[in-house]
């Protein structure tokens, strides 16, 4: 069984890289802390400056980056299985526009409490629900219609958001920074919210790994194999949106992680979701932790939003995939 042996190696490698990235992240920063001290302070926290930096500043942000990366990667893998399209991403069915509008509405109407993130979260779910309801036809839900409905819903919500932004110019920078996506000012209590939301959605997604494999063969064949197609699609869509919403809640709209990571994992380890889902979480987590490290240690200009780093790395890779898929469809050699 070659694939099983290969996946054990892949799991070990992904886990090691994640651990390495987290440790490097804690050591690294304006005040470097040696590895020895980091390990000591993680095991036994005390009142020292080092301990405060490790526990209250660096670890929450790194853990948040890892969770966001892992969550977006799994959400991307699920959306790609649902839409049967390897180029789908967690934002494709209107989630990002919904999140943007939700955040803007909160900023406009409740500026005195910091409700931007929960607003984004509710907005993302609402937009996905709207797209889903619009695409429900006789029998099964058409996944192509879902993409198109998601696009239309996205355009409408974005235009409403832009209108609101024009009404209230002084908030442009906040919203703009949030749209690029970045991880800063994270506290343990916000991380806890994300941990709870992600645990719930991952526990819901995991038992459906076999069904996602069946869906790769098309909705008809999945039906014949005994998958309650419409119910599974609905449950997975909601859980993927919940994962996306949890990620958006803490970091804004970080692009390309959900698109690119599942793709990389499929090339490494094949499309079987029983391995793809956990491996995508680990590799997504490691990737965004490393990207966060790069983003916070930019020379000269200082820290930049991590969304810029992922877009800079992920954009070209996406174009490469697009060209490759296109050539393959035209019968060129792979």
């Amino acid at each position: 069984m070659p694939r099983t042996g290969k996946s054990i190696v892949n799991f070990t490698a992904a886990f090691s890289v994640l651990l390495f990235a987290l440790l490097l992240g804690v050591m690294h920063g304006p005040t470097p802390i040696p590895l020895r001290t980091v390990i000591d302070r993680i095991i036994s926290p005390n009142a020292s400056i080092d301990s405060v930096i490790v526990w209250d500043i660096r670890l929450p942000e790194l853990v948040a980056a890892a969770l966001v990366g892992g969550g977006l990667a799994v959400a991307g893998a699920v959306m790609q299985a649902l839409l049967k399209n390897p180029l789908a991403d967690p934002y494709i069915v209107g989630a990002s526009a919904g999140a943007g509008l939700g955040a803007t509405l909160m900023q406009e109407f409740l500026p005195f409490v910091n409700m931007m993130a929960p607003g984004a979260f509710v907005g993302a779910l609402a937009a996905v629900f709207l797209s889903y309801l619009l695409s429900r036809g006789r029998g099964t839900t058409s996944m192509l219609t879902l993409i198109l409905a998601g696009y239309a819903v996205g355009v409408i919500l974005t235009s409403v958001m832009t209108f609101l932004m024009l009404l209230n110019r002084q908030d442009l920078t906040t919203i703009f920074a949030w749209e690029i996506g970045g991880i800063n000012g994270v506290t343990w209590s916000r991380v806890a919210v994300v941990v709870v939301l992600m645990t719930v959605s991952l526990l819901v997604i995991w038992p459906y790994a076999h069904d996602m494999n069946a869906l790769l063969l098309g909705e008809e064949q999945a039906h014949h194999l005994g998958v309650p197609v419409r119910r599974v699609q609905f449950v997975l869509l909601v859980s993927a949106s919940l994962l996306t919403g949890a990620a958006v809640y803490i970091s804004g709209l970080i692009g390309f992680v959900g698109l690119v990571i599942p793709h990389v994992v499929r090339r490494l380890n094949g499309p079987n979701h029983r391995q793809l889902i956990p491996l995508a979480f680990l590799i997504g987590a490691a990737f965004l932790t490393l990207a966060e490290l790069v983003a916070t240690s930019m020379p000269v200009i200082g820290p930049i939003p991590v969304g810029l780093v992922t877009a800079f790395l992920g954009g070209p890779y996406f174009l490469y995939l697009l060209v490759r898929q296109n050539r393959w469809k035209q019968g060129w050699s792979r």
Partner: peptide, 27 residues
């Protein structure tokens, strides 16, 4: 059957057993 994902023959055939999976098997 039109699929753009590279499941192996073995993985496709295994899906025939999907209808007999209990919740415990799935977890």
């Amino acid at each position: 059957l039109d699929t753009s994902f590279d499941l192996t023959v073995r993985e496709v055939v295994e899906l025939g057993g999907l209808n007999r999976l209990s919740w415990r098997d799935r977890l």
